[in-house]
Design a protein around this nucleic acid. Structure first.
Lengths: 243, 243
DNA sequence: CGTTATTTTGATCGTCATCAATGCATGTGG
DNA sequence: CCACATGCATTGATGACGATCAAAATAACG
């Protein structure tokens, strides 16, 4: 599944240059590329994160989750190509933290020694990491607002706009876009603090309202984003997990 | 209110040594102390955070909130002495981010130039900041789980244990502790994604159940923490916002 | 095709929000 | 010191939104 590292030329990386290499001067970048190990994981595989390492998603979709013994689960974030998988170092917290592949994925790992070393030699590198962490914190604050204070309709609207934004797709002619949603309803529900049925019902309502079409599971077509945004109390910006 | 800086000897700081100065070698620490400006703020004053500066709470209680135009509000965190007030640099997000004094407070500000400079000269400093940010991220993930997946009872139990833990008080003889709760019910409600009445009702229920006593607003007495922990699906660790 | 997983839809219930009133502190001026 | 005002906390009555339980419809897969 993930055993042996795959060689992946950074230049051909779908997410190049990512937040990690961008701040580095060319020679350091070369050094970093040499040390990178890429791994493939199949859907629903847990992605092991070595303590202290930095892991960048090169391709596919990943989710970060926290869960309790009684099988309640919260999806903390979805990760897109170019994102750091996880900032949390130590699992000293009580809920279980896991990083799981939603689709087949490719992950680039930078070993922890390399990270420490680069950090010591290039302050900009640590500064960029710090900036990424601060963005994540800021975004998590908005997630709290969403889970703590918003209705099911509002959460779903925000979710759709977020996926649209992260897909990187421009609005097509007439403002129509087809958004790929590789995660299933349960993942969406656990991301939004709802249950599957509510997610399904709300999506259906949006369909009836003419805001979206649902040609097949795994895909939503947004006819025009304006009415959707009217449903969302947050102006959904964009990317998280990387700068 | 906050206009002119107060001189505050770091050695006499209630939160000394905090996460910011601890990693620094003695000479750098002296330098940092010289540059520190301390400010006082009265209850419910908004605390201005200069872009790029680092602000440490020396004394009192502060809350970090995000709010919408329609007056819905989410309290993201409470800050205790020794904590960094806020990691989020840029308010590029759509919800309004504010840092507000709950009680009268003293805040130490490290100007942004000093921070940049210290970061460049002492990698341990940036590393410590990064570690603090990662802890914050980890903790925010658990907050998401709390707001997304827990009942009112569970949230209140977690809240009480958190306040107990952060108060730094040891359990008294017979396991009894009196926890100071300087924030009002509305702040608690907005912290937990509930409304005031539910908070009040749940506290009353805990009182009836014999888990706590409420001698006067602003104080809760926990007779024995074990039954409270039985209500909380999370093992509440401790400090956040600093290492 | 038949089998299984996922999604959608429906019926009902419970938790928490809302609306409204009362209780209880703290503070001020008479 | 008391009457009164004000702000906050508690308690009660009611209702709505989303959860739960159950079944049908659709998609995925061998």
């Amino acid at each position: 599944m993930m055993e042996r590292p795959v060689k992946l030329a950074c230049a051909s990386c779908p997410a190049h240059p990512c937040a990690v290499c961008r701040p580095l001067p060319p020679p350091a970048r070369t050094e970093l590329m040499a040390a990178i190990e890429a791994y493939h994981h199949p859907p629903s595989a847990e992605i092991p994160l070595a303590r202290g390492s930095v892991n960048i998603l090169a391709d596919g979709l990943v989710l970060v989750e926290r869960s309790l013994d009684d099988k309640r689960r919260q999806v903390v974030a979805f990760r897109f190509p170019g994102d750091m998988l996880c900032f949390d170092g130590e699992p000293e917290t009580t809920s279980r933290l896991r990083t799981v592949a939603v689709t087949a994925v490719t992950v680039c790992r930078l070993p922890s020694e390399l990270i420490t070393d680069l950090g010591r030699r290039h302050a900009e590198f640590l500064e960029a990491m710090m900036e990424g962490a601060c963005r994540e914190i800021s975004w998590l604050g908005e997630r709290l607002l969403t889970l703590g204070r918003m209705s099911a309709q509002e959460r779903i609207a925000i979710f759709l706009l977020e996926m649209l934004s992260r897909s990187g797709q421009p609005l097509g002619p007439g403002g129509e876009v087809s958004v790929h949603l590789p995660m299933n309803r349960e993942d969406i529900a656990d991301y939004l603090g709802l249950n599957v049925e509510t997610v399904s019902r709300t999506l259906s309502r949006f369909k009836r309202m003419g805001l979206i079409r649902l040609p097949k599971p795994g895909r939503a077509v947004i006819a025009d984003d304006a009415p959707l945004r009217a449903q969302a109390p947050l102006r959904v910006a964009g990317p998280v997990g990387q700068a």
